[in-house]
Write a protein that binds this DNA or RNA. Structure first.
Lengths: 229, 229
DNA sequence: ATCGACAATCACGTATACATGATTTCACAT
DNA sequence: ATGTGAAATCATGTATACGTGATTGTCGAT
């Protein structure tokens, strides 16, 4: 999958725009329009959209304009469940092959997160918050694990966009520092516990409480739909 | 992702042919040729190949004819590692929400496996062996987990094709029965242990012993290449 | 006989054309 | 005003055309 073509440009841009919530769930993604923007034909846009749809970020239905995906509550729960599972494996691997320079790399990333947060760039901040987990996966050294986690984490941005309160900070950087600290102790069980707590916190910010789920949902979605023209 | 188009036909057929090892790793997949076979244009074939490449079954490189992917030993290990992780989660969920009719469904599937094995249809037999694990995931009720596991399991067919001894039975049906039996006891820990053992057995059949890995590899691959024309 | 340059062929990358199904518009009846 | 249906418009589904890089084959020099 070595796709250095111009289809990739559209893919990357769209992906990032979705993750940063510049393109909200439900937004229509017309092939012509996007193609005109990037100066490529529909052919390449289609390829990009197809890729995004396989990652669950875009909804493609036959003969209908593609849209930014709107995860259902059920999907959201499944995504978080899998995220727990994958992140636990990441921690597992990291504690097994820990090296001090990994700590430095993570530290550096958190600094970036803080910088974005301080500068008020909430879009970058939330993207970087997600990418922290991707960096962890990369350090863990399993490319497939990294790929799946990337998908799952980016879909969490969608979930946050649909169900989250408008612009709550997604991942407190202090929590990330906590994860790093735990990893540095070399205590696998403790590290996993810390990560679990962090993920539960993320989930709590992204998803409404179970009992208020049903009622809040509908107006929420409708508001979004009308806003999206 | 509701793709009921003719691109899907090519996709399904190719996928199955690869999984059943009718198309061996390294085989060239020319767009024209495939299109002519299915009576569709390159456009649709490309879409199908793109999808397959994202699932890791096909290798696409710019300006080069697509080929059936040849997983490296390293990839193979990563795939198995992730498979362990995902299957464990499946068992976890199944033991948490076990229902007797699940046992029946699994039982029925194993019977199919046996029928194929008895009839000497090794291609179907090995496909069904893999699908047993997909059925488990479906019963577990997490669609995303099912999707990832499908990918991983199908890639295991590739691994087997490259590194496995020619046509060893992949999953003994007795092992699958063992998994079902464990699930029926309702003992989560025991079920997970049984599944782990099963997966290790699968892995042992698919991958060469670590020390003989390096030397066997090259001639193995080359033989395959020359055989594939 | 082997190696390397060049030509011919092949297969892909990308844009575009045309057909068809979806969506919107608008006139008209209620 | 509201709802209905046909026409117009729009966006996608798919095939095809054309350019270009890769691959293969040929021929001459060593």
């Amino acid at each position: 999958m070595e796709n250095s073509s111009r289809s990739d440009i559209a893919y990357q841009a769209l992906r990032r725009a979705i993750i940063e919530q510049a393109l909200m769930p439900g937004t229509k993604l017309r092939e012509d329009e996007i193609g005109a923007h990037f100066g490529v034909s529909r052919t390449l846009v289609r390829a990009a959209l197809l890729r995004l749809s396989q990652e669950g970020l875009v909804d493609i239905r036959r003969k209908r304009t593609a849209t930014v995906a709107i995860p259902s509550l059920d999907e959201a729960r499944q995504i978080f469940e899998l995220r727990h599972c994958l992140e636990q494996q990441v921690i597992h691997r990291l504690t097994a092959h820990w090296r001090p320079e990994m700590g430095e790399a993570l530290e550096a990333h958190v600094k970036e997160e803080e910088a974005a947060a301080r500068s008020g760039d909430t879009a970058s901040a939330s993207r970087l918050a997600g990418e922290f987990h991707i960096v962890l996966a990369q350090l863990a050294g399993n490319a497939l694990l990294t790929r799946y986690l990337s998908e799952v984490v980016s879909r969490c941005s969608l979930i946050l966009a649909v169900y989250g309160r408008p612009h709550v900070a997604e991942c407190a950087t202090t929590e990330h520092r906590g994860v790093i600290a735990a990893l540095r102790t070399g205590d696998a069980a403790a590290s996993i516990r810390i990560m679990k707590e962090h993920l539960h916190a993320v989930e709590a910010r992204a998803l409404p409480k179970p009992q208020e789920a049903e009622e809040v949902r509908i107006s929420d979605i409708l508001a979004r739909y009308s806003a999206a023209r």
